[in-house]
Write a protein that binds this DNA or RNA. Structure first.
Lengths: 209, 209, 209, 209
DNA sequence: AAATAACCGAGACGGTACGTCATGTCTTGTA
DNA sequence: TACAAGACATGACGTACCGTCTCGGTTATTT
C-alpha cells in the first residue's frame, strides 16, 4: 500500500514477518504521541514493537521514512462522502481532516517530516506520493461532483483549471493546518462554516468576475 | 527586542558580550542554510560564531529556542506599506511574506520549530510572541486601513471582528506557507493575484451575505 | 585473570571483542608514560587503542578502574626465584619490585590510584585483590622457604606469624616505594644490600630477643 | 612560613587580605575531607572560603600547589620530644606521624600530590621543601640525640652516615605510610612497638657487623 | 530429508553530538 | 591595587543514539 524502502524479495529464504510491519508502525505512532518526533529513537520503537533494530532497518532507511509511513496510514480514512452540496462536502472533508490533525501522532509527525523534506528531495517525493496527492484528489473529486450538480461551471482551459485546483488545495489544507498547528485553536463546526462560506463566496464570485 | 531565556543582569561581574548574541544568531542562520535543522549542532554554531559552547548555553536553553530567535529576526522586516487599496496591500504583504519563506534559513527552521512546539508549551509561547503575533498585527492593521478607505465596513460586534481576523490570518498565512513549503511551488505574482482575488471576493461577498 | 567490571555474558548478541581489552590496557600504559595520570583522558586512550569511547566505558567504570587493571598487569612478572638464601631472595625481589616501579607507567598510575582509593572502597578492594595481595604472597613464600632452609624458626602462634608477615610486608614495600617515588632516589644494588642487611638483622635479632 | 607562588608585593595599592590565606587553606582541607583530591575544585574552595576565584589564583598557581601548602601545615606539629631513649623517641615520632596520616585531609592530599609530583619537578621540590625535608630532620635529630646518649656510635665517614640516615628515613616513613594508606590498617602502639624493635635491632646489629 | 538462504533476537561495535563541569583568564564595579 | 562577581574560551566528561556488524537460531523454499 504505502511504498517501502524497496522490494528485494529474492526467491528462497525465510519471508519477512508480516506482523512486524504493523507492530512497528503502531509502535512508531505510540512513540510519537508520548515523546514527539525529535526525541523518538529507532531503538525505542524497536523495543516497543518487540523487534530487533536490524529488523527495522531492513524495512526502512531511517527515522523520516518510518514516520512518513506511520503518519500516512492515518490519512487512509480521508474520503469525500456525498453530502448533497459543495458546501456540505467541503465542511465534511475539512472536519475529517481536522479530526486527523487533532491526533497527537499526526501533529508531531507531520510537521516534522515536512520540515525535514525541505533538505531531502526523496523524502519530499515520499510525502507527496503518500499524503499530499491523496488529499489533492479530494479537491478534484469535489469539484467534479459540484460541476455535475451544476454548482460550478465546467472549465474550458484545463491548465487554468489545474491552477485553480492547486490554489484551492493550498487554501484549504493551509488554513486548516495553520489553524490547528500554528494558531493551536480548534477547528470546530463554527470555524469550518465560516471558512467554507469565505471560500465558496470567493470561488463563485471569482468565477463570475 | 525578542525575549531571551535568562534574566537580564543582577549586578557585579563581567557583563555578557553584546556582540556574541548577534554572531550566534547569524551563525545559526548560516548553519540552517547549509545543513538544515536536523543536522544543525550547537557545537557547530558555536564554532561558526567564534564562541564557546558554554556561552551559547548560557543564553539559550537549547536548539529550539535558539532557532526561534534566529528565524524570528527574519520577520522583523515584515511591514505593511500603504499601496492605496486593500487588494494591493494584501498582495504586497503576501509577496513580502513569501520572500522571507523562500530563504532557506526560514524554510529549514520555521517548520521544525513549529513541529517541536507541539510537545513544548514554552516553545509555542515563544513562537507566538516573536513570530505569529507580529504577523497577525498586519492583518489588523490592514483591516483598519481598509475601513478608513471605506473598502470594508466597520464591525459592530468586536468578538465577531476578532474571529474574522483570526480566520483571515489563518487563511493567508496557511495558504502561503502551504504553497511555499508543502506544495513547494513558487509564490509569484500570478499566484498572489489569484489568491488575493479569491480572498477579497470571499470577504466582501460574505460581508454582504 | 584480573577481575573486570562487568558480568561476563548473558546469552545472544555479538560477543565482546577479545582484542579490544588488550589494546585498551596497552594504550592506557602508553598514555600513562606520555602524559601521566592526571592528564590522561579516556577519550585519548580510546583513540590510541583504535576503539570507541563507548567500548571502553562498557568494560570499565572509569579512569581509576582502568588504570588499576593496566598497572596490575605490570606486577604479573613479580615472582620469587630461589636464590639459595633468604638474603639473596629478598634482594632479588626488592630489585624486581624496584624495576617495575622504575617504569613511568607504574610510577604515574600506582600512587594516583592509591590516593583515589582513600575515598573509594570498591577501588581499594580492587587494588588489594589485583596488586597488594599478590605482593604479600611473596613474603609468605619467602618465609616458608627460609624456614625450610632453617634460616628462620618455625612460628608456633599463627596469629603472631601473620602479624609479623604484615609488618615485614609493610616495611619492604613501604621502604622501596618511598625510596623510589617520594625520595626519588634509585633503588640500586648498594641500597638494596644495605636495606636487606638492616631487615634481616632486625628479624633475626628480634626473633632471638 | 611555607613558600608561596611568589612575593610580587609592589608598593602602592590595596594590600592582600591576611585572613584570606588562612580561610583558603582551611577550606581546602575541608574540601579534601569531604570530596577527596580528584573531585576537589578550586571554584568550590573559593566559595567555601568566601573568596573570589581570582583571589585564589593570585596566590597559588593551581590545585597541586594549594594542596601541598594545605597539607604541609598539618606536618607543622611534628616534633621530636626527648623521651629518654632512642626507642621511645622513635615510637613517639611514629605515632605522631601516624596520627597526622589518620586525618582524612592528609590521606587524600598527600598521596595525590606525590603522584602528581612524578611528572612535575617543581611540585616535587615544593613537597620536598615543605614536607619531606622536615621529616628527615627528625631522623638526624634523633640520631644526634642517641649518639649523645651513647646509644649509637659516632660515625666517622660523613657520606656513609648520610646514606644510612636516608635509608632509615625511607624505612620509617615508607613503612608507616604503607601501613596506613595501602594496607589501611591502624598504626597503633602494638604495631609501633614491633616496628621499632625490628628497626633498632637491625640498626644496632648492622652497626656492629 | 537435506541444503540453502534470508530471516529473526540480541547486543557489541565505531562514531558523533549531547549538555554539564572545571580550568585558568578576562572584565566589570566597588572599596 | 585588591577584591567579589561572573562571563569567557577551552576541553574532558559520561551518556545517548546512530547505523552497522556479528553472533546463535529460526523458518521457508528448493533440491
Amino acid at each position: 500500500m504505502h511504498s517501502r524502502t524497496s522490494a528485494p524479495r529474492a526467491t528462497g529464504g525465510r519471508p519477512r514477518s508480516a506482523t512486524a510491519d504493523a507492530a512497528i508502525l503502531a509502535a512508531t505512532r505510540a512513540a510519537l504521541v508520548e515523546v514527539g518526533w525529535s526525541k523518538l529513537t529507532l531503538g525505542d520503537v524497536a523495543t516497543r514493537a518487540g523487534v530487533a533494530k536490524t529488523t527495522l532497518y531492513r524495512r526502512w532507511a531511517g527515522k523520516n521514512e518510518l514516520v512518513v509511513d506511520a503518519v500516512a496510514a492515518l490519512f487512509d480514512e480521508l474520503e469525500l462522502p456525498d453530502r448533497g452540496s459543495l458546501a456540505a462536502d467541503i465542511e465534511g472533508v475539512v472536519l475529517q481532516f481536522a479530526a486527523i490533525l487533532a491526533r497527537p501522532e499526526a501533529k508531531s509527525g507531520l510537521m516534522a517530516v515536512v520540515a525535514e523534506s525541505i533538505h531531502d528531495d526523496a523524502l519530499r517525493d515520499r510525502i507527496r506520493a503518500s499524503i499530499v496527492e491523496r488529499q489533492k484528489l479530494l479537491v478534484l473529486e469535489g469539484r467534479a461532483r459540484a460541476q455535475q450538480r451544476g454548482e460550478l461551471p465546467e472549465e474550458s482551459d484545463p491548465e487554468a483549471a489545474s491552477r485553480t485546483a492547486d490554489l484551492i488545495f493550498d487554501v484549504i489544507a493551509g488554513a486548516v493546518v495553520h489553524r490547528a498547528l500554528v494558531s493551536a485553536e480548534p477547528v470546530d463546526t463554527d470555524w469550518t462554516r465560516s471558512f467554507t462560506r469565505l471560500l465558496l463566496n470567493g470561488l463563485t464570485a471569482s468565477a463570475t468576475a
